[in-house]
Nucleic acid binder design. Structure first.
Lengths: 174, 174
DNA sequence: GTCGAATGGACAGCTTACTGTCGATTGGGG
DNA sequence: CCCCAATCGACAGTAAGCTGTCCATTCGAC
């Protein structure tokens, strides 16, 4: 998405500008988290993406097929598929036959995958302790709630976006 | 980065878990914003990435070389370079000679680039009005502040990460 | 029982970020 | 004055997301 203009001249910061600032902050933090996550687990044979997939596997009560994992993560099937293929080739994950569907194998961690995942979590926890030191937990959870609310509204706004983008004129006057 | 485990059993949500939840929310919202931004400006010949680069150009008081724009955006030079090349090929942006450096041309918007950019902003504003409706602006700015604080701490934590990742043992005991 | 929709994987190709390496240009220290 | 460090662009290659198309499998409606 976009870039904010400088916040407003004199008055209260409009929700518009606050939203733009938030979008910028999300883009930057996304990059920072991925970069830091990669550095944190690099020597375990993991990356941020692999770690996230392992997390989705760990979170599920039973092994799932790739497409199901992708749905849980909010990603496209193929994105997860490639990561799983790579991890399978390196022995972090294995594919178990699915009694309910012949082609849709179930993805499960190997012992070495579990070991890497747990070491990753331990590192993340110690890292997070430093990052959140002195920040009120309530502030963090409030931010999480706000981000999730926006996420839900965005997911629900596809029709509105089509209107805004499709409307031939009328956008010159906002 | 990672995935949270379920939030804690009975007690207060630990900052650790809140942090994991925040990371997840940031990943998802990042994806949602990019997707929505792409849809919003698609017919203008823009993408979220192009729009952000144009924003960085618009924000600067004077035209800048690619490497400088990239620094301002927190991205790698090459990422911006390719987007600029594409936009130049399509006439959204033009390269002006740099009096101070023969090879480092200055990037400036063409009139058609400016037009697209302003239409994009108008759409974003109307979209943002809907998304933030009923949300207290203070909540948004508070979230922005939190995200920026974390961003700064992450940027400053590279040494710490190296310690956590490098320390051969000791991570089994957190 | 059969057909069709929903779901899943495979294959191919695109976008946007990254990295590393190279040569060109500039400007400052000795 | 010269050389070195910093900066910039070019080129090449990687990671991680996306899309679209195709075929296989399953399951439910009829």
């Amino acid at each position: 998405m976009p870039v904010s203009s400088a916040d407003p001249p004199g008055d209260r910061p409009s929700a518009r500008d606050a939203f733009s600032d938030l979008a910028l902050a999300v883009f930057r933090l996304n990059g920072g988290l991925i970069e830091a996550g990669d550095a944190l687990v690099q020597d375990l044979g993991l990356t941020s993406a692999r770690w996230q997939v392992l997390g989705a596997i760990a979170l599920a009560p039973a092994p799932l097929p790739v497409a199901h994992i992708a749905r849980n993560m909010g990603l496209a099937r193929q994105s997860v598929q490639r990561v799983v293929d790579d991890m399978q080739a390196e022995g972090l994950v294995r594919l178990a036959p699915n009694p309910h569907h012949r082609r849709a194998a179930l993805v499960a961690m190997t012992p070495s995958g579990e070991a890497a995942y747990h070491r990753a979590i331990a590192r993340k926890d110690r890292w997070a302790d430093g990052l959140t030191d002195g920040l009120p937990p309530a502030a963090i959870t409030a931010a999480v709630r706000l981000l999730r609310t926006l996420q839900e509204r965005i997911d629900a706004s596809h029709a509105h976006i089509a209107t805004l983008a499709g409307a031939p004129r009328q956008e010159s006057e906002e």
